[in-house]
Design a binder for these strands. Structure first.
Length: 591
RNA sequence: CGGGGUGUAGCUUAGCCUGGUAGAGCGCUACGUUCGGGACGUAGAGGUCGUGAGUUCGAAUCUCACCACCCCGACCA
């Protein structure tokens, strides 16, 4: 039992200007955290209690999934990162941790960095410690503070420079075993998020350059999220928008027959899809070919989409280029023969086809059959262009961005799109890090092989805020039982009356015996203030003890989720409270 | 890093355009009246007006630079 007067819960009536979204405002108003600097927060007692509960649930589910807990350092000698496979890519978001003394810092190299994640630490450890197939599989995890110098911290704990993360790493001998580790973690993640009390969607995520590996993101649906989740309620299909496909193009689509000879026509000044839709041309966007030129590893390549479609740039990762960017008009003209606005990939019209590293055509283009495209001659277009007969195609692929309402690739039902916050990510890594750090094992034939790795992250502090974002109303937070900082709040309206406090103590003991964490509001505040604060900090079950109630021999029980309270005779109060706590803990939050 | 915005008491802010005494509400302290959904009165404490330079007799107010924070984009748990 904790007395309000002996802890520190600084609630705010008004919300600080810096907080724009509900969860961020409530973090501050309910006295859970305070900001030290951009993206850097202190956890106050109430916030810390929630954080610890989320961590504990995570720990339990990780161990249930075979995870072994360790704690790695926050500061890393920089050599480990320099030796790793992504130093140049990650150093921008890493904090250095050299000496604070200016004289030492001058001209000196960075010697330490603050850990943004720990592949570069766990892999050398495992490389040194585990050498035999008999040592595997192993799956290590830790719950620890991470440091990333975010370009733009925002939304409180949602994107912070310092945040609490659970990170885990699995090491296996074979691909099949690694897949098993992966699926164990995926299952553990589902249990974790369910227990914490957030609605989530597990989506297929982009694997980038890792090729055949796979990846799932755990997303919490929220308006303020910065990812789009594409999903189908009927089939259960769900994917990050970067990776999502639709069933728009039937698998058995036959190529359309030509409808006449390709014909050039003048389109002076027409350089956009929209302009070609206007009279006198009146070509609908879905009958136009959109030709985009990119530079991939210094060579130009072409992407062809329908005029009405948009490119999903992340999907170009599957083409195998390390780096790519849109080409400039100056780079395009010598290759194609025209500037953007008059481009096309009709055979024989490309000025220098050999310069192109490839012509990649989106599957949906086949829906056009016969359409209109640029003539590679400024101010001219071609009509009656037949996809099968006339286009120069290296290969077809999926390059377009999926739109809401398109058919699900599995069920054919309309796809929906929602915003989401990424709170977890499971990723099959392969041997990227084991190769770099020599994490090898010897098999039973004395052959050495790199270990197959997986990595698994959960944003603990971000999950905490995601819970608030999902579980609040106009009055404040509405904590799920599992992570509530306290389960029961005993509001003593007249704490100066000894009998009132005695009853509060007795009830607190009963609730604790039933397994609840209890907070007693013993402040000499007016009732209105106490009730407002109670709603704000969102404790699931409130017990009100007042002189007025005691005069008729009653105390009151009230759930945070309900408007009405229930009067209970003092004599029955302990039993009723015990029962309520047990039911709530068992997942039936009703009195 | 690009675009936009804001910096005045612990919090929310007025004043700035049109230069001349820094104001309010919440919170805080004391006393009194109140006492079931953020009470009221009286009296107080609390301000380098983000920092630095400039213009001016005089700058919160005008100019410049810098810093911090917030929002929108590219990246991420």
């Amino acid at each position: 039992m904790k007395l309000w007067s002996t802890t520190y819960i600084p609630t705010l009536k008004e919300s600080p200007a810096e907080a724009e979204i509900a969860s961020h405002q409530l973090l501050l108003r309910a006295g859970l955290v305070r900001k030290l600097g951009g993206g850097i927060y202190t956890f106050l007692p109430l916030g810390l209690r929630v954080l610890e509960k989320v961590k504990q649930i995570c720990r339990e589910e990780m161990e249930a999934g075979g995870g072994i807990e360790v704690l790695m350092p926050h500061i890393h000698p920089v050599e480990f990162w320099q030796k790793g496979p992504r130093w140049n890519a990650v150093r921008e978001v890493m904090f250095s941790a050299g000496s604070a003394s200016a004289s030492v810092k001058q001209g000196g190299e960075i010697q330490y960095v603050l850990g943004p994640t720990h592949e570069e630490v766990i892999t050398p450890l495992v490389a040194a410690e585990l050498t035999s197939y008999r040592d595997l599989p192993r799956n290590f995890f830790q719950i620890q503070t991470k440091f990333r110098n975010e370009i733009r911290p925002r939304y409180g704990l949602m994107r912070a420079r310092e945040f609490v993360m659970k990170d885990g790493y699995s090491f296996d001998t074979t691909d099949e075993a690694a897949n098993e580790s992966y699926h164990k973690m995926e299952a553990a993640y589902r249990r974790f998020f369910s227990r914490v009390g957030v609605r989530y969607i597990a989506v297929e995520a982009d694997t980038g350059v890792m090729g055949g590996s796979f990846s799932h993101e755990f997303m919490v649906p929220a308006e303020i999220g910065d990812d789009d989740v594409v999903y189908c309620e009927q089939s259960g299909y769900a994917a990050n928008r970067e990776k999502a496909t639709s069933g728009l193009v039937p698998k058995d689509l036959a190529d359309a027959a030509p409808c006449g000879a390709v014909e050039e026509f003048a389109t002076p000044g027409v350089v956009t899809i929209a302009a070609l839709e206007q009279a006198p041309f009146s070509v609908p966007a879905d009958q136009q070919f959109k030709t985009l030129i990119f530079i991939g590893d210094d060579k130009p390549f072409a992407i062809v989409l329908r005029g009405c479609d948009e490119l999903e740039e992340a999907k170009l990762g599957s083409l195998g280029f390390q780096l790519f960017r849109p080409a400039t008009p100056e780079e395009i003209e010598p290759v194609m023969g025209a500037r953007p606005g008059s481009l096309g990939v009709v055979k024989g019209t490309i000025k220098n086809p050999k310069a192109l590293a490839g012509i990649f055509v989106d599957h949906a283009v086949r829906l056009i059959g016969n359409g209109t495209t640029g003539a590679n001659k400024d101010g001219y277009h071609l009509r009656n262009v037949n996809v099968a007969r006339d286009l120069a195609v290296t290969r077809f692929g999926d390059f377009r961005r999926v739109r809401e309402g398109e058919p699900c690739p599995r069920s054919g039902q309309p796809l929906k799109i929602a915003r989401g916050i990424e709170v977890g990510h499971v990723f099959k890594l392969g041997t990227k890090y084991s190769d770099a750090f020599g994490a090898m094992y010897m098999d039973d034939k004395k052959q050495k092989h790199p270990m197959i790795m997986g990595c698994y992250g959960i944003g603990i502090s971000r999950t905490l805020q995601a819970v608030i974002e999902q579980c609040h109303d106009a009055d404040g937070i509405v904590w799920p039982w599992s992570v509530a900082p306290y389960h029961v709040l005993i509001c003593v309206l007249d704490p100066q009356l000894a009998p009132a406090m005695e009853i509060a103590q007795k009830l607190a003991k009963a609730a604790e015996a039933a397994g609840a964490d209890v907070l007693v509001d013993d402040r000499a505040e007016r009732p209105g203030v106490k009730f407002k604060d109670a709603d704000l900090i969102g404790i699931p079950l409130r017990v009100t003890v007042s002189s007025r109630g005691l005069a008729e021999g009653m105390v009151e029980l009230k759930w945070r989720t309900e408007k009405q309270f229930t009067k209970v005779p003092v004599a029955e109060a302990e039993a009723r409270l015990t029962e309520a706590v047990q039911k709530a803990a068992a997942g039936q939050p009703r009195a």
